[in-house]
């Protein structure tokens, strides 16, 4: 076996061990995407609960103003994305797949808005819950994160329940959907990332 440099000779076993450990190192580098889930989870939940309060409890006719939270969340999202792009040091295939997935879902929400302008917003929530479920189910699978997979899966029965419920109940079901698929997994993911960061600092 030849070794071209003056480095110490190392065996095939050591080579394989090195390859394995480096791949393992990269695999454990979880990039922290929890802030996006928390941002959109809280924004949608606040939007739903505020709409419910304005429409059902306060009887305010301009209840759709609750969704002014969307452009605010969108602005914060772009600010976070700009900050992250500056800090990112490694691009993994999982990050890329996640980016394509959520860009696709974001575009779907955008074009669906035109559909609901045409057919009426009273049909929107079951579709939104289905997209929340699909996004978090696939994202959770990509990063092998069970709370997000389970949260995503739980959205699907909620779609069926929403389809047979009234509009105001659908609003509350949507708040519940983002709570279980975005907010709870988002907080657990954030906690895990902080724990990992502390451990790697101590090593």
């Amino acid at each position: 076996m030849q070794n071209n440099s003056n480095e110490p000779e190392f065996s095939p076993q050591q080579s394989l061990q090195l390859i394995r450990s480096m791949i393992e190192t990269t695999k454990n580098t979880i990039s922290n995407q929890s802030h996006y889930f928390l941002l959109w989870g809280w924004a949608v939940m606040i939007g739903c609960l505020l709409q419910y309060y304005l429409k059902v409890i306060a009887g305010y006719p301009q209840y759709h103003l609750a969704w002014l939270i969307t452009p605010v969340a969108l602005a914060i999202h772009f600010l976070l994305a700009y900050r992250d792009a500056k800090q990112i040091r490694v691009r993994t295939f999982i990050n890329e797949a996640n980016a394509y997935l959520w860009t696709g879902i974001g575009l779907s929400f955008f074009v669906l808005a035109f559909v609901f302008i045409k057919i009426g917003w009273q049909y929107c929530f079951p579709f939104y819950i289905a997209f929340y479920g699909m996004g978090t189910f696939v994202s959770g699978g990509l990063i092998k994160f069970k709370p997000m997979i389970i949260g995503g899966l739980l959205c699907f029965p909620l779609v069926i329940v929403a389809a047979f419920s009234g509009y105001d109940t659908q609003t509350l079901l949507t708040a519940l959907a983002v709570f279980i698929s975005y907010i709870i997994p988002g907080h657990i993911l954030r906690y895990r990332y902080q724990k990992q960061s502390i451990q790697s600092t101590m090593l």
Binding site: Q2, N4, M22, I23, R89, V90, R91, F93
Partner: peptide, 28 residues
């Protein structure tokens, strides 16, 4: 024979790291 370019601890470590990501910065 094992590829002499790869059969070096640091170069093999770099290649093993890059095989599992799309791209990585030098500092990483």
């Amino acid at each position: 024979d094992l590829d002499p370019i790869l059969h070096s601890q640091l170069r093999l470590a770099v290649m093993s790291l890059l095989i599992s990501v799309k791209e990585a910065e030098f500092t990483f």
